[in-house]
């Protein structure tokens, strides 16, 4: 087991390096350097740029040096000092903005995964056990719709119906009176009250896929002889299904987390924009629109790294649950 984890960690390292290169390419993408955009921005606001400040920025981020040196400076600052550059729109270090908003992104993504599982596992079991029943057809139908419906559209439609039927506008995670309050039981309750819409929206797309996977593996499992044998011996149906075939069918489900995570994080970005949640998504969007590229690159870097690390964790979880993976 320890050996396996170590090997997985070694695979992650080059992955993270390539991610950092891609993020740096993103920083460099728009025409004009950071300082040029910075000066332009100041002038637009009617300020005269300070020569010393510009020089300090240029030496800090190695801006008049070739791109690869800039990359190493950027990486060095990030790893040793936690400095990912500055955002000139927020007039704040990028790392501060990310630290402020990343926890909410992580929390929403994790809760969305949890919700997917809570919904998908029982439904998957039922539609496999009662294959070709009305229930199965209904699930398949909604699964199709769930796959076809892009996240932001679902958010719009749900928002509209909630507003029309209850007169309650879903904006943000907290009601106005709780936005600046410190954490308390009431605040958590308030958050849950507001959070269910984004959670449902983000979770839907993946749930359909999960149900399909679980249903498929479970159907294969149910045809196997040990199931027939157990049934012939008079084992209770509920115990029989939950204890053996479901246990086997859960394994491929865990390995889906790896490719589900990117979709969830991506969906979260868009849904947060529509529902105006205080996560990394809207900041990423704003930074790309105002060409605040250190911020954009930093967020891409963090989101991708988090996804990769999440995938690693799901791999370890899978190895822990499934001995076949561990000893391969």
């Amino acid at each position: 087991m320890g050996n396996y984890i170590l090997r997985r960690f070694l695979v992650i390292v080059p992955l993270l390096i390539v991610i950092s290169v891609i993020s740096f390419i993103v920083v460099q993408l728009p025409p004009g350097s950071y300082v040029e955009t910075y000066i332009q921005n100041l002038k637009n606001q009617g300020y005269q740029p300070d020569e010393n400040e510009i020089e300090r920025l240029e030496s800090r981020y190695g801006l008049n040096q070739p791109a690869y040196i800039q990359y190493f400076t950027w990486m060095k600052n990030m790893i040793f000092e936690g400095d990912m550059g500055r955002s000139f729109v927020y007039k704040q270090p990028v790392s501060e903005i990310i630290a402020e908003r990343a926890p909410m992104t992580i929390m929403i993504s994790l809760m969305a995964i949890l919700l997917q599982w809570i919904v998908a596992v029982p439904i998957g079991i039922f539609s496999a056990r009662y294959q070709y029943s009305i229930f199965d057809y209904i699930v398949t139908f909604f699964g199709f719709i769930g796959l076809a419906l892009p996240n932001f559209l679902f958010a719009l439609v749900l928002m509209y119906f909630v507003y029309v039927h209850t007169g309650w506008a879903v904006v943000g995670i907290f009601s106005p009176e709780f936005v600046d309050a410190s954490w308390s039981f009431a605040r958590v309750l308030d958050m849950l009250k507001n959070l269910w819409i984004p959670l449902v929206v983000i979770a839907t797309a993946g749930t359909a896929g999960l149900i399909r996977t679980l249903r498929g593996t479970l159907l294969d499992e149910l045809k196997k002889q040990y199931v027939t044998t157990a049934r012939a011996k008079g084992m209770k149906e509920r115990k029989l299904i939950l204890k053996y075939p479901v246990r086997v069918a859960i394994n491929p489900l865990i390995s889906t987390i790896g490719w589900m995570l990117p979709a969830i994080v991506g969906g979260e970005v868009v849904v947060s924009q529509v529902l105006n949640l205080k996560t990394l998504g809207p900041v990423l969007l704003g930074s790309v629109q105002s060409e605040d590229m250190y911020l954009a690159g930093g967020i891409i870097m963090i989101l991708s790294s988090l996804t990769v690390i999440g995938t690693l964790l799901s791999d370890i979880l899978l190895a822990w649950v499934d001995p076949k993976v561990r000893y391969k």
Binding site: P14, L15, V18, I19, I22, V26, L29, P30, P31, G258, W259, L261, P262, A263, V265, G266, G267, V269, V270, L284, L285, V288, E291, M293, A296, G297, I299, I300, L303, S304, T307, V308, T311
Partner: peptide
């Protein structure tokens, strides 16, 4: 194949958003 795995492990939508910054 490593490159493919890498691209698949990065969330698509943020990547789209970032690349579209390069479109004048």
């Amino acid at each position: 194949m490593r490159a493919v795995e890498l691209l698949m492990s990065i969330p698509k939508i943020p990547l789209w958003i970032a690349f579209s910054a390069a479109v004048p």
